[in-house]
Amino acid sequence: MATTKWSLDPMHSEVQFKVKHLMITTVTGYFQTFNVEVETENDDFSTASQLVFTADVNSISTNNEQRDTHLKSADFFDTDTHGEIRFVGNRYEQTGGDSAKLHGDLTIKGTTKPVTVDVEFGGIVVDPYGQTKAGFTITGKISRKEFGLTWNAVTEAGSVVVSDDIRLNAEIQLVKQA
């Protein structure tokens, strides 16, 4: 079996997160700078021997500069010390059809925990430029407090400002390397 390397197509990929604010609305944020590198046997992603995702926390955007600055501070990500989020996949488990579970270790703010995300495999196609591409939709949920992101405040009525659960959504397109 031949080892196949896949790299991120950043023009056709996005990574976002969603968090409840005041427990009544959802705020969406994005990482504008991130990378994914994968090694498989041929084109079979269930054989992935290396899968590494990284995100530059300084590239965070919630469409609000004041909130983004707060997220980069020691109250949350502490980008002066912990500027990168890292996920290292260690098992791609087919669950039926194009669905899978991706198991791995997620590191945020110096804390590493096992995480499992849901993966929908979109398929492999050759684009008009002759590049072989693979597409994935990834969803999951983590507890921010488990990764040391514990800042919160309480409203006059007793509601929390930021929920513990963070929903993760990513659209990832990979390019097969020659």
Rank of each mutant, 00 (worst) to 15 (best):
T40G: 01
I138G: 06
V162T: 15
K109V: 03
Y30H: 07
W151Y: 13
K176E: 03
P10L: 05
D118A: 09
I60P: 03
G97N: 03
D98F: 12
G104T: 01
A153S: 12
A178P: 15
G29P: 13
D43W: 11
Q177V: 09
A100W: 01
D43C: 02
S73G: 11
P114Y: 04
R67V: 04
A157K: 10
H21M: 10
E14F: 12
R86N: 03
H82S: 09
E146N: 13
T95R: 13
P114H: 04
D118F: 01
K20N: 10
E41D: 12
M23H: 06
Y129G: 07
D75G: 11
V57M: 05
G89N: 05
E156G: 13
D118V: 01
G148K: 04
T111M: 02
R67Y: 08
L102W: 00
V161L: 14
Q177L: 09
A153P: 00
W151R: 02
S13P: 07
A2V: 14
E65K: 13
H103D: 09
N64L: 08
Q16F: 09
N63S: 13
L168M: 07
D44V: 14
V19G: 12
E65D: 14
N63F: 06
A74T: 11
E65F: 11
Q32G: 01
A157V: 10
D43H: 06
K133C: 00
L106I: 02
Y129W: 15
H12G: 12
I138P: 03
D80Q: 15
M11N: 14
Y30P: 01
N169E: 15
T28L: 05
F136C: 13
D164M: 03
G130S: 07
G110R: 11
H103V: 09
L51T: 08
V15C: 04
I142S: 02
E156F: 04
Q173P: 02
R91H: 12
S49V: 13
A74N: 09
K109I: 01
V119Y: 03
N35A: 12
F17W: 03
M23D: 15
S99I: 00
M11A: 15
V88P: 00
K141D: 06
V52S: 04
G96F: 06
Q94F: 07
A74Q: 11
E41V: 15
G97T: 01
P128W: 04
E146A: 06
E14Q: 14
I142H: 06
L71C: 08
V117H: 00
D164H: 09
A153Q: 03
T40D: 06
H103Q: 11
V119Q: 05
T3V: 10
D44R: 03
I172H: 06
A157Y: 00
S13Q: 08
Q173R: 06
T107M: 02
Q177R: 11
L22E: 00
H103T: 09
A134H: 00
R167V: 13
T150C: 07
G135A: 06
K113L: 02
